[in-house]
Simulated assay, not measured.
Amino acid sequence: MTPSELPTDTAVAVVFFRPSPEQVARIVERFAGRLPVFVYDNGGIPPEALAQLREAEGLTRLGEGRNHGIAAALNALAEAATAAGFRRLFLLDQDADATVETAQALGHALDRAIGEDLPPALVGPSPAPKPGHKAPVYPLRPGVPPRENLRPVEFLATSGSLVDLAAFAMVGPFRDDFFIDAVDLEWCFRAWAGGRSCWMDPGTAIPHSVGRGTIRMRYLPVTMPDQPVFRMAVYVRNSAYSWRLPHVPGRWKLKQVAYLPLQIALYWSRHRFSPRVLARLLAALAQGLGGRLGRPADAPP
């Protein structure tokens, strides 16, 4: 891709938390000097990687190296990109296997998603398989027809998505009191409720996974990501709190009411029915139902 073919209205946004030097190097090598890059330091960047970020062309580093959670980091990146005059922001996490060409393809997809009603808030790639990990599933939005080959979906993962920053300003920021899990899900439901739309481009795919592996239930077709206890607890808390939100569709709430207890049981069995793990998850469930959100006490610094 020649410099004249690069999108001039798009910046890249990356959140780093305890990345390896190789992960930082991959972002720098693929994007720095080709597209403007904004990175947020949520902590744990190795010294040699920090030096590489400081020397990278066209790269702006935000954050002071303390873990503020994914939502707060994404909000800061969106604010900085908007202030710098960009119209679109390509969101990535440190694991994302994406390129400048991915951003360009999604830019064309976002153009195709523009219609007479329900203007697009974001477009994202389809999840490519990643061995040993459960790929996310993005349910279709009922009652909304496809636009060309694009599929209207209830939600997408933030990582790999191209966000329209004008739509972001209208929908509002990601919920920083969610801290990490279900941030993207809640925001997309809010976008749909506000008259904006979310789209998946089947012609563009990147590997995407959550957690460090997959847990499978023996007798039922139930799978879920294997995550640290604190991550699972935040997921349970935020999922339960989402039942209180009017913009989250009833069909999704009913599905989660049935599915969340199975996930808790499956995760508990994975941890050999530890009383400590069960107590943590049930406390998280009570926090969500009671609306007690914010930074988890056991979140890593």
Rank of each mutant, 00 (worst) to 15 (best):
D184E: 15
Y235N: 10
M217G: 03
P21F: 09
R295G: 01
G291D: 05
T102W: 05
R26K: 15
E148P: 01
L92I: 07
L165H: 09
P246F: 00
F155Q: 05
F90K: 08
L118W: 13
G69T: 05
D41M: 06
P145S: 07
L118M: 11
Q256T: 12
L282P: 02
D201C: 10
A32F: 01
Y219P: 00
T223Y: 04
E22A: 15
R175H: 11
L140R: 15
D176G: 02
R244H: 09
A73F: 03
R175E: 11
A105G: 11
A128D: 06
P296D: 12
H68L: 15
Q287M: 12
V14F: 03
R231Q: 08
L110S: 11
P21Y: 07
A166I: 04
L53V: 10
D117N: 09
R34Q: 12
C198L: 12
L122M: 15
R218A: 15
F31C: 01
R270V: 00
T2M: 12
P36R: 09
R18Y: 04
Q94I: 03
S126I: 03
G288T: 07
Y40K: 07
A135T: 14
V137R: 14
G33Q: 05
V183L: 09
P125I: 08
D184P: 11
S159I: 00
F189Q: 15
A169T: 14
R218H: 09
G294Y: 08
L77W: 02
R147M: 01
R272S: 10
S4T: 12
R237V: 02
R34G: 03
H247P: 01
L77C: 10
A80G: 06
E5C: 02
F17C: 06
P47V: 08
P146F: 01
M200I: 09
M232N: 03
E186G: 08
A72N: 02
P131Y: 02
V15E: 00
Y40Q: 02
V210H: 08
E55T: 09
G291I: 12
V12A: 09
C198G: 02
M232G: 00
P296Q: 08
P136F: 05
S20Y: 04
P7T: 10
L185F: 15
P21W: 10
D97Y: 05
